[in-house]
Every structure is written in C-alpha cells, then in structure tokens.
Design a protein around this nucleic acid. Structure first.
Lengths: 384, 384
DNA sequence: CGGCCTCATGAATCCTCAC
DNA sequence: AGTGAGGATTCATGAGGCC
C-alpha cells in the first residue's frame, strides 16, 4: 500500500434530520381519531406514513356527510353514491393531515383493496401526492371465492407516493436488489397472509383484529423507504404491526388508534419486540450514498500514476492519464467521463467503469481492472 | 372484511339475448373518436366492453439504458393530456357511452397502469359501475427501471365491472377453474409482454403500435366473461387484438379507432384470423366437464411408469416419478404442482404443463411432451 | 444444426450536486 | 433557479450471426 494518510472525501448526500424529534410522541399510541391526533403534530416532522385505512364504513365510526349531518351506520339507509361521498371526505381529511405532517422529502404508503383503493389513489393524486409505484401484494394463500362467482381475490394493492413530482424521496435500491437475489425488486411482492403464531389473538382466542397485516410486508416497506432513526407514522395503527417492525428495525414510530382493545394488544406486542443490533441492521449501500471521489485525487494518491495507459474493455481506445487527473486520447482531452462520452458518441459515460488499467495481481501477474477498482482502494485507505 | 355497502347476491338465471344484433356494425372498425362513434350505437346492445384507453403517462425527458441506448417512449399525441381534470373528463365521457350501449347484464373491462387506473376506477364507480375484481397482469419480462430509482414496474391492472351492484353479470367459473388446473382462477395473471412474432410491425419493420397487448390476455378475458355469439366492443381498438381474439373464439366484435394506420394494420390482421371450428370450440367446452385427473391415476394406468424422469422445458430441473404419483427432485418431494412451485419459487405451478417427458413418436423417435399429453391419453382411454 | 455470443427492445411519470 | 458536469444504472426474450 502507498503512503495514504488522511484523505478528504466530499461528504455523501445526508438526509435532512428531524430538528424536533424530541417534541414528537415517539413510541406512543395516540388514542383517538387519527385526524384529531395528527393535528397535534408539527408540520414536516415525519419521514414516512404507512396507512391501512378502513374501507368498511361501519369501522369508520363517527362519519359525517359532506353537509355535516351525522351518519348512523346501522340505521341509515344510504345508497352507494352517498357512501362514496362520505368515504371520499374521510379519505381527503386524513390524507390532508398526512401531507402536512410529512417532511418535504417524506413518503406515504397506503394499502387497500379494490373496494377503496381507487378512491384513495385518485384523491391522493388530487392532493398533489406523486405516485412512485403501485405495488401488488400477491397472497400465497388467499381466501377462496366460496360462491364461485368471481376470480379469487388474491391480492391487495399498496401505493407508494412522494410529496410531489419533484420531491427527493428515499429508496434503498441496493438493499432491495440484494433482498431479491441481485435482481431489481419488482412491483409485485409475494407473501402469505398473516396467520399462525404471528396472528394475534384476544383473551377468548379469537383473532384480535380482522385485517392484521403480515410483518414481512412492513419489513419490506420500511427497509425500502426509511433509514434507521427515521420517524414512521401509522394513522390506523390497529394491533401495531407497523410499530413492532419499526422497533425491530430501529425506526421511531407514532401510532393513532381509536379502539382501546387494539391499543392494548398493540402495546403488549411492541413491548415484547427487541430491536436488532446495529450490525444486523446494516444494509447494502448504493453508490449514490457513498462519498464522491475525484479521479484526480486517485492519481494524486499514486494509485494510478500519470502516464499510465487506460483503455476500454474491448481496447477500441487507449488514453493516457495526466498529472491533473485529466486523460488524453488522440485529439480528445478531458475528464474520464467526458472523453469516454465523446469517443463512444454516447449521451453519457461513467468513466469509472468504462476505462480499465493493468494492475499487478496477487502473484505478480497482470490483471485488467476497471479504474473503479483504484477508487475502491482509495476509499479503503480513506477510512483509516 | 366488509364492503362499502351491503352486498346483495342475486342468482344468475338466463341471460337477456341480443334482440337487434343485425343492426349493429359487427366486424367493423368505426373510424373516428370512440365517443362520437359509440353515440351511433343503440342502447343496451353490447355484451362486453374491453377498453385499453390512453394511460396519460406524463413522461419527462429522454431516458437511456445503462448501455447508452435510447428508450423508445410512448410520446404519441393520443396520450397527451394537459391535466388530471382534462383526463377525467375524457374518461367520464367514454365510460358514460360504454354504460349506455352495454346491456343491463353486460360487463366492462378496462386496463391501465398507476398513471391512470385510479382516476378510471373512481370515475367508473361514480358512474354506477360495480367492480367485480381488479385483476393484475404480472409481466414475466417487464422493462427494468434503468436508473434504480423505483421498483420495476412489473404489472398492469385490469378492472372488471358490472353495470351495477345487482346486475347479473356472466362468469364462466368452470372454464376458468379448468384453465387453472382445477384451482380457482386468481386475480393475478402471469403473461409475457407482447413480443416476437405476435408483435405487429409496419412496412419499415418498426412496431406498428407502441402498446400492443398480448392475445393471451384477451383470450382469458373473453373466455371468462363472454359466450360464443356475444358482441364485444373495443373503443380503443388499436391494432385489433380484441377483434382478432374475438373472431378466433366465435364472438362478434365492434371496434373504434381514430388512427388510419392502426385501422389498416388491424383489418389485415383480423382478415387472416381463422375462427376455431365448431369441434374445436366444443372440445374446449367439453373440457369444462372433464373429470379431474390425479397424476397418480395416470401413473397407476401405466402411462407414465414409476422411475420415469420428467423435466421442465429448459431442463433446469429433473425429477423422478414415484409409484404413488408423487415426484422427487433432489430434496424436494411432493405433487407435480407442489414441487414445480417450490423449485421455481413461484406462487403456484401447473405441474401438467410444467413437467415434460420423452414419449415415443409415431415413427419410433423420441418426442418431448408435457405430461399433460399423458393426461389426455388417460382421458381418451377412460372414454371407452 | 446446435451452441454460443451479440444486439435490440419493451406503456417509464427513471439523477444530483456544485456553481 | 438554471446550467453543466459527474457519474450511477438493466432483465427477459427473440433474432441473427458465427463457428
């Protein structure tokens, strides 16, 4: 190794950290209607919202018509148009509060079925949310259609949205790719429904919540779109799957839940949850989040000496490294990227992977490597 | 789980038969805007609408693959809308006409992506359509996300709707179950995108239409929700996949298409299409009532001897048939379906078509066939 | 003719930082 | 806020050529 001492690298993109996490009710289940409870939270204070809203108006409880009149779910005889209008207002209300409490670069997930997801999707677009993906949860073991009148309803839909078209949402691309055996994670996810030991029971042995979601689903959502230390809000907390997985993954969480029974089950559940330790939490990092290195610094450090010949993989072109980190290939001179781009007549070029050099192998043999390998050595040295 | 409103399930009786098919422009591509053209059709005259409207993609700048090649995007005029409001009005207009021309017991299919399907879904609910299922077309070979910024957009969504909550829509439950090897057909369908020989080209060898749908998709839609002799309307006919499959399956069809180029390609395509003859259709229908065959019975009958090696089409895996009709592949043992499913890590597997064997051809040569062929022989023998 | 390699391409809301 | 440069990023499939 060379005489690499302290090397300064430019800092990787750091995400805006919450300025007021201390004032947030972290790790608490707020008891009440989610709109009321969210109104108590400050603007732009939450990194992620995960919402599993009810689509059954009876579960919705105290709902008012757009004209303000109260709806009695049991006795009122409303038609489907009334019910859509009421559901839409309910949806607009909670989504509006979510938008306010989310940070500018925060994101929203909503899960639903065909009964409600088209209402929700259209309304969140109207509110300015920008859909990044719709994700399909394909159930390995859905409930069959007992009457044989339709297709087995074997999936639910999740919407992943940023605050707007231009917002800089967070996506752990590498972690997802690693999770999917080095193939890009697709928009269809396969999980079994929540059952067996994971399914929470009440004192009488009945399921504690009718629509408990599998932890694997939340695990993937949080791993894909949050970092450790982020604040995750779940306005329809239920039995606290979001909180349990957030705690395990070292994310902070806030829940809203109106039903005391659910709050009780959720609290006990999350209490038992143990956070993973730091090494287990480590995930594959994207190049994008690694510090940026100038090619000149690699030359300066002696890892690629001026005068070294570099060439593309097929040796169509050969260029010479110059002392200032520029390269020369015939009449073309400039950065490793710029010259590679011009030579190939391409819209862009990553010089780090385009250019190669001959390095010494472990047994003294010659080894052709992308110059990115030299950057790797540089970064390794910089860690000390 | 509940529904948005009370469900009333009515028993299907006999379907209203078309009274005025003769006055309809059957087998014609109406040249013009679909709303204008549909207005010329009588009320309640169509059994099924299949609609593939513009998706309102709202693409930004150019996109290149990592190798620098340019992605041919959908930038056609017909997909340009200035706002959600304009797209919504467009959607409301064509859906309104569809609702009028559909028979009371008719049904509507719409296909879309996350860009437009939430608008479409909410609007069709507002118009009184009743969603029966949302179906996910899971693409085996979607275009990747080249920049690593989102999940691979690997699916599109179809909505299947009746005229209203109480309408008596048509569903060929048995045919779907048979097609899915005696398991209820699920709401997620797996098909490759339309490519290869099926993809229509123009005179210059360029794709004739940017968004041609696979015939397999239409085949399943029409088989599931129409009968021979039904009238199928496609308001966004494009290159006529709906018409081609309808003709093949003995359904009548009407298309609307504004672009002369598309109409020309579609006409030529459908002209060449041959309807399945009556015996083929009858064979297909008789399959519905064919008894379920256990793989074990085929083995028992000596059509596939225990010890026979079976393998998938690409010979990635080889398994051995055992006496009880289970199969063994390395550590995995179980049914032809179960083992195939585990090996592929798929949600399900039709072992009859997944596994193959070497059979003796008519001239003594070796012939690779799906084991479904052995099932066919078994059934043939059972008829006697 | 088969095996292997290369190349083209598909409904896509596809970057980020410093100056 | 606009601009320019750095540099990160792809999977399945079919067609065609080469040996």
């Amino acid at each position: 190794m060379g005489e690499l001492t302290k090397i300064r690298v430019t800092k990787a993109k750091t995400r805006a950290k919450p300025v007021d996490k201390a004032v947030l009710p972290l790790g608490q289940i707020l008891s009440g209607d989610c709109v009321t409870e969210m109104r108590k939270l400050p603007d732009a204070s939450v990194d992620l919202v995960f919402a599993d809203p009810p689509y059954n108006l009876q579960l919705g409880g105290d709902l008012n018509r757009p004209d303000g009149s109260h709806v009695d779910a049991v006795t009122d005889d409303w038609d489907q148009f009334d019910s859509f209008a009421i559901y839409d207002k309910f949806t607009r209300d909670w989504l509006t509060e979510c938008k306010r409490v989310l940070k500018p670069d925060g994101a929203l997930w909503v899960i639903g079925s065909y009964h409600n997801i088209y209402r929700v999707g259209a309304i969140l677009q109207d509110l300015g949310f920008w859909i990044l993906n719709d994700v399909v949860w394909r159930k390995t073991n859905p409930m069959p259609n007992f009457r044989g009148t339709r297709f087995t309803n074997a999936h639910e839909t999740l919407l992943w949205c940023s605050q707007g078209e231009k917002s800089r949402y967070h996506f752990n691309y590498r972690a997802m790719k690693t999770l999917n055996d080095e193939l890009q994670m697709r928009s269809d996810w396969i999980f079994p429904i929540c059952s067996g030991g994971e399914r929470l029971k009440d004192d009488t042995g009945h399921k504690a919540h009718p629509t408990q979601k599998p932890e694997a689903l939340l695990y993937r959502v949080l791993l894909a779109t949050t970092e450790a230390g982020d604040v995750v809000l779940d306005p329809f907390f239920g039995t606290g799957t979001t909180g349990a997985v957030a705690k395990r993954l070292g994310r902070d969480w806030i829940g809203c839940e109106r039903e005391a029974d659910y709050r009780k089950v959720a609290s006990a559940r999350i209490e038992k949850e143990l956070p993973l330790d730091e090494s287990a939490l480590a995930t594959m990092q994207s190049r994008k989040t690694q510090p940026r290195v100038a090619f000149g610094a690699v030359v300066e450090a002696g890892l690629l000496k001026p005068g070294t010949e570099i060439f593309d993989k097929k040796r169509r072109w050969t260029a010479t490294v110059r002392a200032d980190g520029s390269v020369e290939c015939g009449k073309e001179t400039g950065s490793i990227h710029g010259v590679g781009k011009v030579l190939q007549d391409a819209p862009s070029c990553n010089g780090w992977t385009f250019w190669h050099y001959e390095a010494d192998g472990p047994n003294g043999e010659k080894l052709v490597q992308p110059i990115d390998a030299a950057r790797g050595l540089y970064l390794l040295a910089a860690e000390d």
